[in-house]
Design a binder for these strands. Sequence first.
DNA 1: TATATTTTTGTAATGATTACAATTGTGATT
DNA 2: AATCACAATTGTAATCATTACAAAAATATA
Lengths: 141, 141
Amino acid sequence: MEIKDEFLKEQLLTKGIKPSNYRILILRYLLEKKSHPTVDMVYAYIKTTMPVVSRTTVYNTLDTFAKNRLVQVITIEDIEKRYDADVSTHGHFKCEVCKSVYDFFFDASSIEQTMLQGFMIKEKHIYFKGTCEKCMTQSSH
Amino acid sequence: MEIKDEFLKEQLLTKGIKPSNYRILILRYLLEKKSHPTVDMVYAYIKTTMPVVSRTTVYNTLDTFAKNRLVQVITIEDIEKRYDADVSTHGHFKCEVCKSVYDFFFDASSIEQTMLQGFMIKEKHIYFKGTCEKCMTQSSH
DNA sequence: TATATTTTTGTAATGATTACAATTGTGATT
DNA sequence: AATCACAATTGTAATCATTACAAAAATATA
């Protein structure tokens, strides 16, 4: 299911971002793959379509998206940022074996507690680490 | 309330770490201050007592602590690791104004959900971002 | 077409972290 | 106390993701 250019342009314009070719391509990638890619993963993908792209362009584009809340930045390891086009509050699970990042959903209000009275909470991040189901079954051979 | 050297030595030995002067000093700092310091904060503190310490020693020591689960590594920003001597599962709140990191506690089991059936969860990390109470009241003048 | 503005680019700089080999310290044994 | 083995500490250099920046290219506007 290929996402229509028109939809992508609309998404960008809604956030005040001019829809350039790169921006459309990168946003489509993030929305279709949902794989929480790193900058380098995005860069590698873009190169398959537009081979002369600059790495800086990918950085700039993702920064623009993040600043305008079109994507959220996921920090699980300090050595890499990942980008998620789903900006809702949800959890991420990183498998330490295959390095995949999975989404999981839960009731965010269940974490509310009384210790942050008077605090203004802007972002909630939850991530777990361990071994995913696939790697669990494979390692048990 | 100064933590006794004997207690610190015991803590280290329990985890199989030989208690050197640096290790005792750094562990005391982490336990007494509870401020979730970065490597550079620890380095700056150690220098006040032992002025010729190498930055590498601080890195090595904190790595050793983390590998042996004497402290946990907190990744909120990708540009800095922070270290916490409280290894229980609890949340962290980082104030985007004053940069302080606060602890908060909640029922970890409330996040359990059904989407990670068959996954082995080894670590749970929760962090929020926003503005702390102190900075909220100060900015309202 | 000329002009202004934005996007894209490539290189250089930054800065936290790691690698590594040398030096120093510690503890046990003789 | 001298020797030895081993661990801890050190300082420098290398790594690597990210950022800064200024030039070039593309796009929109008049």
